[in-house]
């Protein structure tokens, strides 16, 4: 199984429960906005703690409240590509890319900065600060930054949102290549199921819960 998630989430504004297991290379999580897709990614990355449940990725238990397991984010090694890219504003693109690379355990790296730069076509951006990048450029840099940290799995939050059609197509093709080239379980969040038909081996649909 690439992802086995069974969580009970209690957030400030809403609570929900979600359960799925997927052995697809790329699993898509779809549903209307506000249903908890991003919160689920945060829980898998270790940024929020579910009230209870169990999260296993590629056979490793990341969270299991019954067993008292709750790995901190830096030990989960998620390659998390945030919807807003979340690049470090005080570092140039090159330093952003290198950030996680420095923390990756030696021997676990599967891509060099040169390769990532070529794959993502971001050579011309290396000296720029994130504030000067377009949305699509920032997202490509964010993907590179995540890959260079030698993650054990990828979390992609709305990677195609707010991109024009040709940019979205480019990125879609890139994600397809990553999926086929790398041996990484991928979990992709999208609000539109049309986007993911082409990518996902498995689609998990989240629906709004009824009144509590």
């Amino acid at each position: 199984m690439s992802f086995e998630v069974q969580i009970d989430m209690a957030l400030d504004d809403h609570a929900y429960a979600l359960q799925f297991a997927s052995d697809a290379k790329l699993t898509a999580l779809v549903g209307p906005s506000g249903v908890g897709k991003t919160s689920t990614l945060n829980a898998i990355a270790g940024l929020v703690r579910p009230r209870s449940g169990r999260i296993t990725v590629a056979g490793e238990v990341l969270f299991d409240d019954a067993a008292g397991v709750n790995l901190p984010p830096e030990q989960r090694r998620a390659g998390y590509v945030f919807q807003d890219a979340r690049l470090f504003p005080h570092k140039r693109v090159e330093a952003n890319l290198a950030y996680g690379e420095n923390y990756a355990p030696p021997g676990s790296r599967f891509i060099s900065q040169d390769e990532a730069v070529r794959l993502l076509e971001i050579q011309h951006l290396l000296d720029r600060f994130p504030a000067t990048l377009s949305g699509g450029e920032a997202r490509r840099v964010a993907i590179g930054r995540a890959l260079l940290a030698a993650p054990r799995f990828l979390l992609l939050d709305e990677p195609l949102a707010s991109l024009d059609e040709s940019r979205a197509e480019t990125l879609l093709a890139l994600i397809e290549r990553l999926r086929d080239k790398l041996d990484l379980p991928m979990l992709l969040v999208s609000h539109s199921s049309a986007d993911v038909q082409r990518l996902a081996g498995r689609v998990v649909t989240m629906t709004a819960p009824g009144p509590a």
Binding site: N42, A45, P72, P73, E74, P89, Y99, Y103, A104, A146
Partner: peptide, 18 residues
């Protein structure tokens, strides 16, 4: 300082201190 940036750093492998 956006706390989410700190979260991003953590997912990239940084300890809380780093």
């Amino acid at each position: 300082v956006d706390r989410r940036l700190v979260g991003a750093a953590r997912t990239l492998g940084a300890s809380p201190v780093r």
